[in-house]
Simulated scan of single mutants.
Amino acid sequence: MKNITEMTPAELREFLKTLVNEEIFKSRERLATLLGKNGSREALEAEFLEFHGDYENLGFWFETYTQDPLNELDPSNPLTKKLKRQRDYILANRKTTLEQRIYRRMGIYLESDPKPPKKIIALPPDEYRNLLRTLVTQELFVAREQLAALLAAGASFEELDVGFRAFFIAYELLELALEDYHYDPDEGLEINSEFAEELERVDASLKAGDRTYSLEEVFKEFEGK
């Protein structure tokens, strides 16, 4: 993503319009409605599949945003103080690096990032619903409404800049809420025969002592092409 400080006012507005209209805000409403109606586990799982995919898609926008979101904000401002508390909480509790989180969004765990033991799909009914309630009431959805209101009101570049920073930190809070959970929507599905045979060939190759490559080596090779 282009450095937000280098965006023109027009570029910033267009970018923020894209963010506030991401699909996650629609899937969140559907998921919250299902929870409110005490929907079935099957219905919740189907909607959570959409929500989680939309959450990952939103994260792609932030992969190149490495700036400190609090940089140059007035430390005496009440909003800045709130954002600092949230940011401090994130940094104190986060266990993953940016690289690990990027790979997780691709469904991959690096060797340095053990798979979380908690599987969302295997959570007991009450724990599953409580997790979903936690997710749909995250700060991100408040920050989205505030940012959308700023856009509708024709707010200044400076106001939109602060609104984006609040949105970004709120996204990090949602990311943190999911960090200790593993979610694979394909887990438990039957593997087709051709893929099973390929796995057997790979296993035989490994047992024969053929060279293996780490995920980092594979992706570096692709990036170099």
Results as ranks from 00 to 15, higher is better:
K2E: 04
K2Q: 10
I4S: 03
T5M: 14
T8M: 07
E14S: 10
E14W: 06
F15R: 04
L16H: 01
T18W: 09
L19M: 09
E23S: 10
K26N: 14
K26M: 14
R28G: 02
E29A: 13
L31T: 02
E42G: 13
A43F: 08
L44K: 03
E47Q: 13
E50L: 08
E56M: 08
N57G: 14
N57R: 12
F60L: 11
E63L: 09
T64D: 15
N71C: 12
L73E: 02
L73W: 03
D74A: 01
T80F: 03
T80G: 01
L83A: 01
L91K: 10
A92R: 12
K95P: 02
L98T: 13
L98D: 15
E111S: 13
E111T: 14
P114Y: 11
K118W: 00
K118T: 06
K119S: 13
L123Y: 07
P125W: 15
E127W: 08
Y128V: 02
Y128I: 04
N130G: 08
L131G: 00
T134N: 15
L135S: 02
L135A: 05
L135I: 13
F141A: 00
A143L: 09
Q146D: 10
L147M: 02
A153P: 03
E158A: 15
V162C: 03
A170F: 01
A177I: 07
L178Q: 02
Y183R: 04
D184C: 07
P185R: 06
L189M: 10
S193P: 03
S193L: 09
E194W: 07
E194N: 08
F195E: 07
F195N: 04
E197A: 13
L199C: 11
D203C: 12
S205F: 00
D210M: 14
D210C: 13
D210H: 15
R211S: 10
T212N: 11
Y213Q: 09
E217C: 02
K220H: 14
E223A: 15
G224T: 11
G224N: 14
